[in-house]
């Protein structure tokens, strides 16, 4: 497993902050009507994407979800290109033709946020099959939510990954709600991690607000995958800070004192405190990183606002490859 060095801890902390700042900005401008469409915010779940992707190289792949901005940033997508994409500008990572739910950057191994719940499972299988086929040591992380865990594709894909020992790590982000419904209603399994047993793969549930817990669990799973020992399932219990989509009134929240307490936890502050205590970075370094993250997001906003809309011709382009 990659050890968490001072450098990597700082980089992780920066990415977590970048995601938070990015999402808070998107939230604000969405409410102001500046950006069109739907947005699903990842704020509050940063520890998972960043800790998981900390084990990946540029050439490794991830598949993502409709709540994908955090995965993009964690995997190394350009923040300017992401923001411009969300603004629907031609300088966006997808030339403004994908939008929030479809941000992808194949050069960074980011195989796309995905508007279909559970849509990433089979694609992750395919990307992992590619690694096995070409005998590379690259791995794939398949991020998916608690809602997606109840799609048929979850079961098909875990089964296929297991029978073929594919280099894939299924990272479940259980944020407490599939749209407006909690998993205690929607899932017969007490934990999603327990479902791993059905496919004879390791399954572990960790505290998704705890960066180190995710880091260690996914690190082991990535090692296994790279070594050709097959897939794993890691369930990360987190909490969806905002609604399913922006504009959601979230009347279904705060069912119990435990939920209220859990919702109050801030994964970024917890990691900051941990890292300071473990001497991974100093207070001054932390502040500097926070400033850099904020500056990067502000620059991205400026970039997006200054960028042109796509030409009309772009409507017709890239339906087919030549």
């Amino acid at each position: 497993m990659k050890a968490l060095t001072n450098e990597t801890a700082k980089a992780a902390y920066q990415k977590m902050n970048t995601i938070r700042d990015f999402e808070e900005h998107v939230r604000k401008i969405f409410a102001a009507g500046v950006i069109p469409g739907f947005v699903h915010l990842y704020a509050g779940e940063e520890a998972i994407a960043v800790a998981a992707c900390a084990h990946l190289n540029q050439q490794d792949y991830i598949t993502s979800t409709h709540r994908g901005h955090g995965h993009c940033i964690a995997k190394g997508c350009d923040v300017n290109g992401m923001m411009a994409e969300i603004y629907g500008k031609t300088t966006g990572l997808c030339k403004g033709k994908g939008g929030s739910m479809h941000i992808a950057d194949l050069d960074q191994g980011m195989l796309g946020a995905n508007g279909m719940v559970g849509g990433g499972f089979p694609i992750a299988i395919g990307a992992a099959l590619r690694q096995q086929y070409l005998k590379t040591d690259r791995v794939v992380i398949c991020f998916f939510g608690d809602g997606a865990a109840n799609e048929g594709a979850f079961h098909e894909s875990l089964n296929m990954a297991a029978i073929w020992k594919l280099p894939v790590v299924f990272v479940n982000e259980n944020n407490g709600f599939g749209e407006a419904t909690p998993p205690k209603y929607a899932s017969a399994s007490k934990t999603f991690a327990s479902r791993a047993a059905a496919y004879d793969m390791p399954g572990e549930k960790v505290d998704g607000k705890d960066f180190m817990a995710v880091y260690n669990a996914v690190g082991q799973a990535v090692d296994r995958a790279r070594a050709g020992e097959g897939p794993s399932l890691i369930e990360c219990q987190t909490y969806r800070t905002y609604g399913h989509f922006e504009g959601d009134e979230q009347t279904y929240k705060f069912d119990s004192p435990e939920e209220i307490a859990f919702a109050k936890r801030d994964d970024i502050q917890e990691f900051r405190a941990y890292a300071l205590k473990a001497n991974l970075f100093t207070e001054a370094e932390a502040t500097a990183v926070e400033d850099q993250a904020m500056a990067a997001v502000q620059a991205a906003v400026q970039f997006a606002e200054d960028s042109p809309l796509p030409d009309a011709q772009a409507l017709y382009e890239d339906v087919y490859a030549d």
Binding site: A127, N159, M160, I163
Partner: peptide, 28 residues
């Protein structure tokens, strides 16, 4: 069997795997 892959009866996942393999450079 590496190149003629028998799949489980899981149409969504093998067809989707073909999509994933194609977008990452194979020709399934």
């Amino acid at each position: 069997r590496q190149r003629v892959i028998d799949t489980p009866i899981s149409e969504m996942s093998y067809m989707g795997a073909a999509v994933g393999a194609a977008v990452t450079g194979l020709r399934p």
